Amino acid sequence: MSLAIAQSTPTGAAIGALVSKAYGFGEVVECELLRRSFNQVYGLKFADGRRAVARLSAERPRGTPKVDYEAALLAHLRTRKVPVANCLATRDGAVAMMVTLPEGERPLMLFEHLDGEMTGEALPDVEALGRGLARLHAAAEDFVSTESHHALDLNNLLESPLRLLLTAPTMTEELRTQFTELGSRLRQRIAAMGSLTQVVCHGDAHGQNNFVTQDPGDERVASFFDFDDAGPGYLAFELAVYAWSMHPRSVNGQFDEKALARWQHFIAAYQQVRPIPTADLQAIPAFMAVRHFWLLGEYAGRIPAWGSQAMPTAYLRKQVEMLTSWETLTLPTATLPSENSSAE
């Protein structure tokens, strides 16, 4: 009897063998699974000492991964001197190879290895993230691609995730009504804001998809990777991702003193490179809620692979309470840091 598979996880050795054959960098002598989350990520080392990272894209609720758009954006940013983990082509010049697995074909992409550490609590590194994101947005202003992409609009960030969330087997009728009403009020709130700034978004810039290093001039510099959520979208959403990542997941939660300092230094460092219109700054709290709806939809779409208890009913009740409290959420205005602001 043949069983349907939701999502399989190849071993590092299997991925290493595929890369050795499909790419022109020689034999892979080490390959380890680094992370199994939304995608499966592997660290590789070749016989000549070169290192790389492979990403095996998982099935996404939004549909087929847009690997051609991602590779084109990375190449554009590299020409504009933005530090990113560029896509490495196969022997045949393809930006990805299709891997046949029990659940079907999934694309595997190979990327340059980046040094450094993820953004933590040190304010100089937080400022590097803010500056780096602003430079990324500025460099992508003239990016034009005919490749298919996912837009970071309210359909893909709020409406489609909400539809998925409402189908979760742990959802009750009462919760379904509450989530629907929350989503409707959030759409109306954003519609009332009028025109908001659009940029080419990284899509997931929460501080863990970049590394920070010291450049020759002693400036802390952020290098970015994992652009599979990239696409044209709201600047307010892009900025909200970092605020969302720090905000307590509780009713009436507030930034503590350290988180508040990180937020202010992040947004001020961004503005030193690229101004943020007042309307977009004011929209950030609303887009924190949008980001959370997006995440809930991502979880709901993975129930076949992760199980229904990845989001039990009690958890869903807490999300309603939190999102309700976020309807009146405000964030402090950032001030430009002083010369001594980079102290930890």
Rank of each mutant, 00 (worst) to 15 (best):
G120S: 08
G26A: 02
Q282I: 04
L74R: 08
R91A: 13
R106A: 12
R262P: 05
L162T: 11
D229P: 06
S341C: 13
F287I: 05
L88Y: 07
R262D: 02
A128L: 08
I284S: 02
V29K: 04
G130Y: 04
T9D: 08
A47W: 00
F255N: 11
A230S: 12
A75H: 00
L88C: 07
R220A: 11
S8A: 15
F237A: 11
E27C: 07
Q282A: 09
E147Q: 14
Q264E: 15
A13G: 00
A75Y: 04
D92N: 14
E105I: 10
A139W: 08
G49V: 08
L123E: 01
Y234D: 06
W306G: 00
K318H: 13
V95L: 00
G183M: 00
V126W: 02
A279H: 12
T9N: 09
A283H: 00
A259M: 12
V95D: 06
V67H: 14
Q319D: 08
Q282V: 01
G16A: 04
R249T: 02
T330N: 12
K21G: 02
T335K: 11
R62M: 07
E298A: 06
A310I: 02
A14K: 05
D153C: 07
Q188T: 13
S8C: 15
F227D: 11
H149N: 00
E32P: 03
Q178Y: 04
Q272E: 14
A13D: 09
T330D: 14
D125Q: 07
F255E: 09
W244I: 01
L133A: 07
E117Q: 15
H247L: 14
G233Y: 09
L164G: 09
E174F: 05
M322L: 05
E105W: 01
L329H: 10
E32Q: 12
W294R: 13
Q214R: 11
P304D: 10
S57E: 10
L108N: 06
A140F: 10
M171N: 06
G104L: 14
M98E: 15
D142W: 02
A128W: 01
Q40A: 15
S308T: 13
M322G: 01
V82Q: 12
S245W: 08
R185Q: 08
F46W: 04
L175E: 07
L182T: 00
P332E: 11
T146Y: 04
R55P: 03
A283M: 01
A261K: 14
A75K: 06
Y299K: 12
W326P: 05
M311H: 00
A230C: 04
D280G: 03
Q214H: 06
C31M: 06
Q264F: 02
T9V: 14
R176W: 01
Q309T: 09
V28K: 05
R106G: 06
I5M: 07
R302M: 03
V53H: 02
S57N: 12
